[in-house]
């Protein structure tokens, strides 16, 4: 159960090796937190010891975002074993490179399957559990890349656009059910995922994303831009004519 300060006792991270996801979990952990579940495709790389502290149980579970058939059972088993899920962070995803996708359309389809289809199915499984338990909070990692298609990452961007729209609707569908959904829209984040890429304006770090995300979640915000200024940047960018937009130095 969460307390009056929205501090969770049980946290599930879907995408247990995601740097942003882990930073959010780190920020969510308080002295009332009892269980953290790192659900990931490569349990060997989950490094649960990074979260170790007295009184905190850190569990690693194998989870395949692409295997959508397994998601509902996976979440039900989690709730049976660990009790109510107070907060779930849906953080898995792949960026891929546009050049690779151009050469191998199947790889593009697989990336979209994980980023969008997998996230839809996993979020619905979590939402179902939270509806049954009558409370909970879901944080969905979207991206500003979903705000407008760009030549450099439109496969990734389009998958996040779909997920963002899905998560907004999910939040409204769950209004008054005791379950809240927060859509997190980071800009360019320096992390393993973006290693070697040219940094974009207003680039940030997983730590900063996590601080803003958790502050927003605690206040019950439905959307959190990180950094916050991107909300206003994209208010403008959304209306920039295409010929101008594609020439902008956005990385």
């Amino acid at each position: 159960m969460q307390n009056a300060l929205n501090e969770p006792q049980t946290i599930v991270l879907l995408g247990g090796t995601s740097e942003i996801g882990r930073a959010i979990v780190d920020e969510l952990i308080s002295s009332t937190t009892q269980t953290v579940i790192l659900a990931c495709h490569h349990p060997d790389g989950a490094q649960p010891e990074r979260f170790a502290r007295e009184g905190l149980d850190v569990v690693v579970e194998y989870f395949d975002a692409a295997d959508t058939e397994s998601h509902d059972g996976f979440v039900r088993d989690l709730a049976k074993a660990h009790g109510d899920i107070d907060v779930a962070v849906v953080a898995f995803g792949v960026l891929g490179s546009q050049a690779e996708f151009d050469a191998d359309p199947h790889a593009a389809a697989q990336a979209v399957h994980i980023n969008y289809t997998g996230a839809v199915s996993a979020s619905l499984a979590i939402a179902g559990q939270m509806r049954r338990q009558g409370h909970g909070q879901i944080a969905v990692l979207s991206s500003v890349a979903g705000e407008r298609g760009r030549a450099s990452n439109f496969v990734y961007g389009s998958s996040k656009a779909g997920l963002d729209t899905f998560a907004q609707g999910l939040g409204d569908a769950l209004a008054d059910s005791g379950v809240r959904v927060t859509v997190i829209r980071p800009g360019f984040v320096h992390s393993r995922m973006t290693q070697g890429l040219k940094s974009a304006p207003f680039a940030t770090t997983p730590r900063v994303v996590a601080e803003l995300a958790v502050a927003g979640m605690r206040k019950g915000r439905h959307t959190v831009w990180t950094p916050g200024i991107l909300r206003y940047v994209f208010m403008v960018l959304r209306h920039v004519p295409r010929p101008v937009f594609r020439r902008l130095p956005l990385g």
Binding site: Q2, N3, A4, L5, N6, G134, H135, D176, G178
Partner: peptide
């Protein structure tokens, strides 16, 4: 206190 409602 109206903090953190839940449904039943």
């Amino acid at each position: 206190g109206r903090a953190t409602p839940s449904s039943a």
